[in-house]
Design a protein around this nucleic acid. Structure first.
Lengths: 114, 114
DNA sequence: CTGTATCCTAGCCGATACTG
DNA sequence: CAGTATCGGCTAGGATACAG
């Protein structure tokens, strides 16, 4: 019964983490939120640069349902919605930070986001 | 001239790192190599589970041209090719490891790959 | 065993227009 | 401002055949 070695990667801790943050935009969104505390919907779209509203919506929804980000809606006209990291989301910051530091080390000429 | 604030994410250290390791399979490949020292082509395909030869080839080629992995070919019949992390690739291990530990913390019932 | 080449499909993703 | 709806292209991915 030691056949359990050939386990699928998705059933590992690594695969679980990956399933939450993979995708073309999720890590970018998480990274921006880690740098900015709260960001509004349109602001996110501008900061990311290149993402469409459709993708932004779907990615935010998935991140929210995975409890990595908070969505706070203010009932006003015009509408205002703020996104921020949950505590669970904040616990990913060391990983995002590690990526930033790795990039800085490999390409020192690049500057971090202000 | 302070308009430089609205910089594209791809020009940041974070974006640079992301561009090298994003994609559906690259981080899985890097993670497996971080756990196993050297892995052969077919072995990788089996361990990943679900990837086709076509995707595996293209992802390995990109990782190799980004100098994150080594490809060592043994001139024998039948052919034998071993993949391993370069030093540059190995410097990514703390990030991969962080993901593994994050997953372990959030889902303690999952077991790491043997 | 370690790949490449070809054909095909599903769905991710983008552009645009529209709504409350 | 904060989204949704629709249309369509591109490409990830599967199946299979083939080569060195």
């Amino acid at each position: 019964m030691k056949e359990k070695e050939s386990k699928n990667i998705t059933e590992t801790p690594f695969g679980y983490t990956l399933s939450l943050i993979s995708g073309k935009w999720k890590m970018i969104i998480l990274y921006l939120l880690s740098e900015h505390e709260v960001i509004r919907y349109n602001e996110l779209q501008r900061k990311i640069g290149g993402i469409t509203y459709k993708m932004l919506s779907s990615q935010l929804k998935e991140l929210e349902s995975d409890e990595l980000i908070n969505r706070k809606e203010y009932p006003m006209i015009p509408p205002k919605v703020e996104y921020s990291l949950t505590n669970r989301g904040k616990s990913l910051i060391p990983i995002l930070d590690g990526m930033c530091r790795w990039g800085s080390k490999e390409r020192p000429e690049l500057l971090c986001i202000v």
